[in-house]
Design a protein around this nucleic acid. Sequence first.
DNA 1: ACGGAAAGTGAAAACGTGTTCATTCTGAAT
DNA 2: ATTCAGAATGAACACGTTTTCACTTTCCGT
Lengths: 346, 346
Amino acid sequence: MSDTEQAPRGRATAEMVAARAKVSRVAVSRAFNPHTSLKPEKRELILKVAQELNYTPDRAARALVSGRSHLVGVIVPDVCSNWESQEIDALTTALQAEGFATLLFKTRTDYSMDEQLLAYMRGFNPDSVIAFVENVKPQTLARFLDRAVPIYVHYPLPGGGEEPEAEPLHDRLNVLQRDGIDQAVALLQGFGAKRIAYLSGADKSRANGARERTLRQVMADRGLAPPVVARGDFSYDAAYEATINLFRVGDGADAIFAANDVGAFGVLDALRHELKLRVPEDVKVIGFDDIAQSHWKSYNLTTVKFDLDERVRALVRLILRRLNNPDAPGFQETLNTRLVVRGTVG
Amino acid sequence: MSDTEQAPRGRATAEMVAARAKVSRVAVSRAFNPHTSLKPEKRELILKVAQELNYTPDRAARALVSGRSHLVGVIVPDVCSNWESQEIDALTTALQAEGFATLLFKTRTDYSMDEQLLAYMRGFNPDSVIAFVENVKPQTLARFLDRAVPIYVHYPLPGGGEEPEAEPLHDRLNVLQRDGIDQAVALLQGFGAKRIAYLSGADKSRANGARERTLRQVMADRGLAPPVVARGDFSYDAAYEATINLFRVGDGADAIFAANDVGAFGVLDALRHELKLRVPEDVKVIGFDDIAQSHWKSYNLTTVKFDLDERVRALVRLILRRLNNPDAPGFQETLNTRLVVRGTVG
DNA sequence: ACGGAAAGTGAAAACGTGTTCATTCTGAAT
DNA sequence: ATTCAGAATGAACACGTTTTCACTTTCCGT
C-alpha cells in the first residue's frame, strides 16, 4: 500500500484523496462544497488528506458540470490607462474575495476586433463580462446573453436625459455625470471664467460624447456660451498637443474642462511648461475621474469624482445578483458624481 | 426537422453543429484544430454552420482532456502601481496574440496570503504562472511545478554577482541592474554629487534588497561613501514623506536615487512643493523602471530603463518554450538595464 | 488495373468534477 | 421496541471536448 504514496505525478485528483482517506470520491466532492451533508469528522479528515496531497478541485471540471466557471471577463481598451488600471485592480480584489478570478482581454477602441475578440473570450466561458461601451458594440455583445452577462459602464442613457431605462437588454451601471459637471461649471463661473474650453476624449467614444453633451447642456442652462472644443483622445500626449494648439493656433481659453484626469495632466503640463502660463491664475483646469495620481502635488487637480470603490461595489453587486437570478430582466445600478476641489481652480 | 432549429437555448455545442451540418461530432472537433486531417470542403462547411450557431469550443472541456487551459496566471501585489499596470497591459496583449488569456490575482507583499492564494489560483489550472519574488515565496511556489510553470521576474541572483544560475528550479527572468545603476551613479558623480541618498522600496522586498545592494557596490567601486537610506515602500506617498523627513530631520542630500519611478515622483514633488528646492539645481533625482509617466513634463525623470517590450517578449518566449518542452530543466532569460537621461540631473 | 501508403472517418474512451437518486444509517418521538 | 423523518452515503450519470484506434476511402506510381 505504501508504494502508492510515491511520486504523486501531476495534480492530485479527488480519486486519490478518496483512496487515501478511505472514503468515496463523492465524499471528497462534498467535503469541498459547503452546503452538502457530510459527517463533520469525515469532512475534516478529507480536508486534512487533501492538504497533504496538495489537492484542490479542478475548476475546469467543476465548470463543465456546474455551468459556473467563476471567471469574470473584463474587456479593456488598447490604450489602457490609469483609469482602467485602477478599475481592474480594485475589481480583481473584490472579485477574488467572492471566489471569482479576473480574466483580462484587450480590444481596440475603434470596434475593429469586436466579433473576433468576443468569440475568443466566449471560449473561456466567463460567468459574467464587464465591458465598456467604449470598447464593444452593444449589438455584438448581445449574442453573449446565453450565459455571460455583460455589464456596461458609462452607458449613455437614451433621450438625452439621465433617467435609467425601463427594461434594459443587459445589466448596466449608469453614471449620472450631470451633478459633478454642473458643480464644476458653477465653480468656474464663480471665478469669472468666460471662455471655457472642452478637451475631448477619443472621437468615437460614447463616454466622451455623453460627457460633452452634458457639459454643453449644463453651460447652456447657466447662460454660458458653448465651449470651444480641443480634440484629444484621453491620452496625455494628445492632450498636451491639443492644448498647445488651442493657444498657439486658436484663441486660447481661461478655463479648460478635460474629459478625463490623464488628459488634464497633459493640459496642465502644456500650459505650465510649454506655454508658460500659470494655473490657476491664468487658466483654470478641471478633470474627470479622480484617479489616484490626481492628488499628486505636481498636479493637485480639481476634478469630478467618479468614485472607484463605490463603482466596484456596484459592479460586484450586479454580477452576484445576476448569478442568483439568471433569468431576471436587466438590472441597473446608478452612481452619481461630485466635484473634488483641489488646486487647479482658484 | 425544422422544429429543432427553434430557440437554441444556452450555448451551442459541438453536437448541435454536427447535427446541423450532417457530420459526426468528431469532425466538428477536428474542424477547429488545425493539424488534423479533414476534407477541406467539410471543414469549411462545419465552420460556416458553427458561425451560424455562434459556436465556439468550450475551453473548460478542452482543458479537461488536453491538459492545457491556455490561462496564464499573473500575481500582482495589493499596492498595484503603474509599473505592474503597464506590465499586465503589455503582457495581456502579447499573450492574447498567442491564444492565451491573462488571469489576474492580487496578493499581499508581506507574504501573508501566500498559501491560500496559491491554492486558490491552482484551482484554475493555469498553464503558467508569472510571479514576482516580491509577492510569493519561492518555496511556496515550488508546489506548483506539477502542471503550471512559475516564472520569476526580478529574481535576485545568488552570490551577490549577476551571473545566471546554472540550473534554476523554475523558469526565470533575470535582470542585470548593474549597468543601469552604474551609469546613473557615474552621471551623478560627473555632476559632482557628494551625498547620494537611496529612497528604498518596501522593507521586505527582494527587488529592493537587490537594488540597494547593487547601488552600494557600484558606489564603493567608484570610491563613493555609502548612501544614506530613506525608507519608502515603492509608493508615491511614502516617498513624499520620507523625503521631507530626510531633509527636515536628517541631513539632506544633493542627489537621490529612488528604487522606482513612482517613488521618484514623490521625491520630486516633496523637494519642489514642500521643501522649495530646485531640481536639478539643488538636488538631482534618478528613478528606476522608466514607466510611461516618467516622460510627463512635470517630472521629466532621468531613470534607469528596464525595457517593457523587451521584458514582455522574454516572458512570452519563456512561456511558449516551456509549453513545448514540459520536462526541460529551468529556462532563463536575462535582460539588461540602461540609463535614460532626462531633466532631473544636470 | 493493381498495390500500397496516406488521408479521411466515426465509435468509444478519457478528462475530473457536481448532481441525482435510491439506499442505508442515525436519533428522537411514540 | 417501533416508527419515521432526516441525515449520510455511494453508484451511476452528465458536462463538452480531445484523443486513440480501428476502419474505409482516396490517391499515386508502376
